[in-house]
Amino acid sequence: MPKWLRKSLVILVTVITFGMVTPQVLSNNPNEANKQEKRNMIEALPLVAEATNHSPAALAERDAFIQEMVKQAESQAYLKFGAKIKPVIEDEFREIILPNIEKAIEEIALQFPEDDLSHLSVTEMPGGGQSEKIFHIMNQKTKQDVIRFHVRRDHPPQEGFTFNFHYHTVHDQFQLHHELGVIYWDKNTPPKWMS
């Protein structure tokens, strides 16, 4: 593949996905297995909404979708926190984390045509106990997750416990942590989720 074409594809994919994906799949590796893997990764990228579809009705539908997802996200998060954790971190969650969740959902919503937004839904139940899962947004048509929202308990040495909120996307096969924020708990061990 000519160098100028490879660079153009990298720039195109980066722009289309709003920088969420920088395709390193177009490297100079001549290995045929890697070439097939690269093709598969590029084909797996979700369709991007056409730039010409910015009608007021389409924008209103997209905004309604985002607001509904954020409402469900908040509900799932409070369910995960349970009666013991929720009263302690609820205000910080609403001020710091929830706006960042909304931004992440907006970015995902922009990558789907309006017709496909109706196929995206929030998973039913957050993970309890020590699980990180708050909720996932999945494509009902393909039965695959699009974005996963998690919270991890961190306990750095000589410091108290914190809750690290982050998300993973399908673009990097859910490998990278995209930070949403951190909320301090206390020096004492927090109770299990959903307790």
Rank of each mutant, 00 (worst) to 15 (best):
H168L: 09
H178W: 10
N40Y: 03
E179N: 07
V151D: 01
L45R: 09
Q111V: 05
M125K: 15
R6E: 11
D91G: 04
F81I: 07
L79M: 11
N29F: 06
A83K: 14
A73K: 01
W4D: 15
K35R: 15
I147W: 02
N100W: 04
L5P: 07
I16G: 09
D186E: 11
W4A: 15
L120R: 07
M69L: 08
W193S: 01
I97Y: 01
Q76D: 04
L47Y: 12
N164R: 10
E32W: 06
G82I: 14
P126C: 08
E106V: 07
I108W: 00
M69W: 00
P30V: 06
E179V: 06
I66H: 02
N139Q: 09
Q72I: 04
I183S: 03
A44C: 06
E114A: 11
K187F: 15
N139L: 02
G127K: 10
K143M: 04
V88K: 15
N29Y: 08
Q144E: 11
G82Y: 08
L12S: 12
L176W: 05
E74C: 08
T17Q: 10
E90V: 14
K80Y: 10
K86V: 10
M138Y: 11
L110E: 10
K3A: 12
M125H: 11
Y78Q: 02
P56I: 00
E107G: 08
N188G: 05
E179R: 01
R39M: 13
Y184P: 02
H119C: 12
R6A: 13
L9Q: 12
M69S: 03
F174W: 05
